[in-house]
Design a protein around this nucleic acid. Sequence first.
RNA 1: CGGAGCGUAGCGCAGCCUGGUAGCGCACCUGCUUCGGGAGCAGGGGGUCGGAGGUUCGAAUCCUCUCGCUCCGACCA
Length: 445
Amino acid sequence: MRLSRYFLPVLKENPSEAQIASHRLMLRAGMIKQQQAGIYSWLPLGYKVLKRIEQIVHEEQVRAGHIPVLMPTLQPADLWQESGRYDAYGPEMLRITDRHGRDMLYGPTNEEMITDIFRAHVESYKQLPLTLYHIQWKFRDEVRPRFGVMRGREFYMKDGYNFDLTKEDALHAYNRHMVSYLRTYERMGLTAIPMRADSGPIGGDNTHEFLVLAPTGESEVFYDAQVPDLKLGDREVDYDDREAVAEICTEFTTLYARTDETHDEAVFNELPEERRKTARGIEVGQIFYFGTKYSEAMGATVKTPEGNVPVEMGSHGIGVSRLVGALIEANHDDKGIIWPEGVTPFHVGIVNLKQGDAACDSACDALYKALVQKGFDPLYDDRKERAGAKFATMDLIGLPWRITVGPRGVAANLVELTSRRTGESEEMSSEAALARIQEIYAAHL
RNA sequence: CGGAGCGUAGCGCAGCCUGGUAGCGCACCUGCUUCGGGAGCAGGGGGUCGGAGGUUCGAAUCCUCUCGCUCCGACCA
């Protein structure tokens, strides 16, 4: 993309409404525009990041054997009356009446609807196990939305639901989700720690929240200093291998890691003092096993040799839109955002220091074409701006790599490759820069 | 939902107390110079002062109502 033809409304000054880094930077980098309290338009740059995150979530869910569907945002009230949550949910649920006076709601989650789909189409235990998920907009009418997309009223979320015959099967589904989530966050360059959590209004007795450590997090968390070092790395996972999947879960959940809701001071204090860490965390996902709570209430049963039995269920969510904010909270400096390679909106930025100079222009054009030809998505700043303005824009929007083309180097076929994260620059030929970019992204494409 | 604020040009703000029909910085447009870290000079355009009602000769300014947004607290993916 050529910046002169793009839509990137960056702000030089800080918007007054933004209190935390991610909100401020998303507004300044032209990623979002607030339309109402807690409701945002996603401008081109923000939309690209949102879609990259969504894509990673999809890929990891499919890899785990889960099946994508898409359910509507508007749901009929009667499904929620069946489960009893229509009355239980309270004013956070946005209730709507259509022209015929029928009660509807903008879905805050989809347990009821997915259970309805299941009971309509699944009759036999032979059709199990089954895990369906979707990525869809949700609405919770928060009393006090804040922090930009981190705590909006409208939010984009992946929610998945497993249907199994036995509790053992359902717990395997739970473990499968935990591992797939760990992979998902790692691919985004995030360390999200699974912590034992409270089940809240969804109910159930087995649940973990995934938290990204950041000073602006909403929850206080307590953990063993060794936990953030746990990594999946590039190990292969066979999601059908129950023992292997369970082993990984054990590895990631044995050390102490809890939110303030489940924190146990006595257990925590058994750790040597230097390993006891207290911090703040942003919740970016949660997994639940809740058994037959909805299947019994809504008659979601399968036929077995022993008769009709309600299915065992769990539900599992990843806050896709919230992750955009969480990623920025975890990756920024005083100049702007620093995107991890896995989610960056553009792979590399090209800065032409002397727009209009024949040699610089043609060098940039050639580099741009070569990058596109190799499957990259570069952003070429071809505006008639001064160098300082171009650098400041690149730093703000946080592309992890920048190639600078100036009149000095062009004569000798030299460009400059700069890392946004370290600020380190290296002069090399265009061809060498292209090769380096290929190398860098080999693990992310 | 309790408490506290704020709505004046695209963005950030001053003016309000002590009424006399708007101003600054950035951005934008034109020209000249500048050109590796958000340039300088000169000129220029842009605002029913959130909305409605009231007081007054006269309201951004005072009064009432209303809508929107933000912050602290309780609540939450």
